[in-house]
Design a protein around this nucleic acid. Structure first.
Length: 288
DNA sequence: GACCCGTGGTC
DNA sequence: TGACCAAGGGT
């Protein structure tokens, strides 16, 4: 395997020339802005996050501002970003930060990790990008770049392994770790893409082990079915609650999904997740 | 580790 | 056209 540190210079030079100008990367971005961006970006493309993030920052520039709202308002303003529990998580983050951390986003990895919806990746990303900390940032982009360039595989393992963490830590420079991390992520997002990698534009194509071995196709990976699932049903039901500006009669929910058994199960799950609230009169609304 | 959780774009 | 994919996390 190529000495992994050989990757650093070319990738950092490439990033200096090709980095996108994203608002949460600007010098005036706050730790809160970074945290909001990282949670919005979970499994969600940048292009869809941009307008929602901008609205959130204008409306709720601090954790305290969001904490003052009912959780349902966060869900409503989440729009169609998907995985709406993230909106609830962000709202809970805001209340915890306001109540227990003096209104300031915590800077250390362990405390970040204790916040709802903040896992290993997000804690490392916020500690790095908002506070300059030195942490291995292993997202799907980084994992794919390292799998190809170093391990010679088309795709990384399905779940993160100890070997991947060890490699990411070994690559982390003593100085400038956050820039290195965002540079690898950017390379994965713009060049070393999952489907049709643009190897002609890649600064490390000449030492990419996967490329050098002929870019062999790995086994096909099964995607998740969606049509007809509870997830799709939940999405339809929640869309009705989001669009309404008050309680909606149950009949308004019934008309968006035919299968009554599945519909009731999904609605119960939304209530259990705190995304919907049943009222005594049989209507439903976003949580207050 | 397996499975669940939304949504829309892409080839 | 439908399968795959996108800065994951929780159970």
């Amino acid at each position: 395997m190529p000495e992994p540190t050989f990757l650093r210079e070319p990738i950092l030079d490439w990033y200096a020339e090709n980095a996108r100008d994203l608002p949460w990367r600007r010098p005036d971005a706050t730790p809160w802005g970074v945290l909001v961006s990282e949670i919005m970006l979970q499994q969600t493309p940048v292009s869809r996050v941009l307008p929602v993030w901008t609205e959130w920052m204008a409306r709720w520039p601090t954790p305290a501002a969001l904490a003052a709202e009912p959780p349902g308002e966060a869900v409503r303003r989440w729009g169609r970003l998907g995985y709406p529990r993230r909106a609830l998580n962000l709202h809970a983050c805001a209340r915890t930060i306001t109540a227990e951390h003096g209104g300031e986003v915590p800077s250390d990895h362990a405390t970040l990790l204790s916040l709802p919806g903040v896992g290993e990746y997000t804690a490392a990303a916020v500690a790095s990008f908002a506070f300059g900390g030195r942490h291995a940032v292993l997202d799907t982009n980084v994992r794919r770049v390292l799998a190809r360039a170093v391990r010679g595989e088309q795709y990384p393992p399905r779940s993160t392994t100890a070997a991947e963490r060890a490699l990411a830590e070994a690559l982390l420079p003593e100085v400038g770790a956050p820039t290195w991390s965002v540079a690898v992520m950017e390379l994965g997002a713009l060049v070393c893409t999952a489907r049709a990698p643009r190897c002609a534009a890649c600064p490390v194509a000449h030492l990419c082990r996967w490329r050098l071995s002929g870019s062999p196709e790995g086994p096909p990976r099964k995607g998740q079915a969606y049509a007809g699932t509870d997830r799709q049903c939940r999405g339809r039901l929640l869309a009705v609650l989001r669009q309404a500006h008050g309680p909606v009669p149950k009949q308004a929910l019934d008309v968006v999904w035919d299968d009554a058994v599945q519909r009731e199960r999904a609605l119960d799950a939304l209530v259990a997740d705190g995304l919907a609230e049943p009222l005594p009169d049989g209507t439903y609304r976003l949580p207050v």
